[in-house]
C-alpha cells in the first residue's frame, strides 16, 4: 500500500481531454484540454465552481457525456494502459461500474425507489462478476458490511426509503466499490449530508481506500474536503485546469491567482477574520468566454499578456500553473 510518500503506479492518465457541447448559443467548451494523472491508492481532488467543467470531466472518463449535444472531441483517457475513448460501447459497458466506477452526489436520486437494496447493489456484481444465487447474496451482504451498514443480512431486503440519507449514501458507496474498481470517481458525494454524517462517510471512504488501494477522484467545490481527503489537487476554471499540485503546495503556495483568491475567500473555522477576500465578478458563461485567460477579467494581477491564453508552466515539485506570472 503506498504511504504518503511512496507513490503507486499510474492507473489513469488523462491527456488533453476535450468535451464540447454544440448548442444553439454556440459551442460550449465544457472541458477544454484537461490533463492529469492518477496513481494507485491516491486521491485527486478536482476543484471548481459550477460550470468549471469538473463534472463533465468525470462524465467524459465514464463515457457518459449526453450526446447530442455533447461530444468528446479529443484527447485520451488511458485506464490501466488502454484508451477508453477508443472503446466500443460494448467494451465500455464491460468496464463501467467495474474498473472505473462512480459515486453520485444525491443519494435520493442515485437509487431507484422501486427496487430493493439487494437488487441494486447486486446488479453490478451480477453483470460484471457473473454472480448469482447465494454467492451473489453473500457478496451483497459483504458489501453492505464493508460500508458499515448495521445488520446487513436483514437490510438487503429493504427499499431506499427505509434508509436515512447517510445510510443511503453508504449504499451508493457499496455499489461503487462492489466490483473492485481501479478508479472511483466521487462527485460531490457528501454535499447533501449533515456535518456529523459527512465526517462518518469521509472516514469510511478513507478506510475503504486503505483496504483496497482504489484511486479516488473527488469532484468538489469545497476546499475543506480537499484539505481533509486529497493528496493532489487540480483546480479547474472555465473548462481548463489552471493549477495542479500536491495538496500542501496548493494551500501553502498557490501558483495561480484564482486558486489563491478562492482559498482566501473561504471563511475559516479556526479563527475569526473580519473581512473576507472577495473575487469580483462571477465565472464567465462557457459559450461566451473572454479571449485569452478566462480568469483575467476577475484577476487582480491581469496585464497585457493575459489576452493570450498562457501555456502550462511546470514549477518545482511537479506543481503546474497556467498563468503568465510563472513565465520566469
Amino acid at each position: 500500500m503506498p504511504d504518503a510518500n511512496g507513490r503507486g503506479d499510474v492507473v489513469l492518465d488523462v491527456e488533453d481531454l476535450r468535451a464540447y457541447f454544440f448548442t444553439r448559443w454556440g459551442v460550449v467548451k465544457a472541458v477544454d484540454g484537461v490533463s492529469f494523472q492518477l496513481r494507485r491508492g491516491e486521491t485527486l481532488g478536482i476543484v471548481g465552481e459550477s460550470g468549471s467543467g469538473k463534472s463533465v470531466t468525470s462524465l467524459s472518463m465514464m463515457r457518459l457525456v449526453p450526446s447530442p449535444p455533447g461530444q468528446i472531441v479529443g484527447g485520451r483517457v488511458m485506464l490501466d494502459g488502454e484508451d477508453v475513448l477508443r472503446y466500443s460501447e460494448g467494451q465500455m459497458e464491460k468496464i463501467r461500474g467495474a474498473k472505473i466506477a462512480m459515486v453520485l452526489q444525491d443519494p435520493m436520486t442515485a437509487l431507484n425507489p422501486v427496487f430493493n437494496i439487494d437488487s441494486q447493489v447486486g446488479e453490478a456484481l451480477r453483470i460484471h462478476k457473473r454472480l448469482s444465487g447465494s454467492a451473489l447474496k453473500s457478496q451483497v451482504v459483504d458489501m453492505l458490511r464493508k460500508v458499515r451498514i448495521p445488520a446487513p443480512e436483514a437490510r438487503v431486503r429493504d427499499y431506499p426509503h427505509q434508509f436515512s440519507g447517510g445510510m443511503r449514501q453508504r449504499v451508493v458507496g457499496a455499489i461503487g466499490i462492489s466490483c473492485d474498481p481501479v478508479v472511483l470517481i466521487a462527485d460531490e458525494p457528501t454535499t447533501s449530508l449533515d456535518a456529523t454524517v459527512q465526517a462518518q462517510y469521509l472516514r469510511l471512504l478513507k478506510d475503504l481506500q486503505d483496504e483496497t488501494g482504489v484511486a479516488i477522484i473527488f469532484i468538489t467545490h469545497d476546499f475543506g474536503i480537499v484539505a481533509k481527503m486529497c493528496d493532489r489537487v487540480a483546480v479547474m476554471y472555465a473548462g481548463r485546469i489552471v493549477e495542479q499540485g500536491d495538496v500542501r503546495q496548493i494551500f501553502n503556495n498557490p501558483s495561480h491567482p484564482y486558486t489563491e483568491a478562492l482559498i482566501n475567500s473561504v471563511p475559516r473555522m479556526e479563527e475569526r477574520n473580519d473581512r473576507l477576500y472577495s473575487i469580483p465578478g462571477q465565472p464567465p458563461p462557457l459559450w461566451d468566454l473572454p479571449g485569452g485567460c478566462s480568469f483575467a477579467p476577475r484577476c487582480e494581477y491581469a496585464h497585457e499578456r493575459c489576452v493570450e491564453y498562457p501555456p502550462v508552466y511546470e514549477l518545482a515539485g511537479g506543481q503546474t500553473s497556467a498563468c503568465w506570472l510563472r513565465s520566469g
Binding site: A195, D222, V266, M269, E270
Partner: peptide, 12 residues
C-alpha cells in the same frame, strides 16, 4: 460538530 467541520488547511 466542531470536530466534524472540514479543516481549512491539510495540516490541521
Amino acid at each position: 460538530l466542531m470536530s466534524a467541520a472540514l479543516p481549512s488547511h491539510p495540516d490541521i
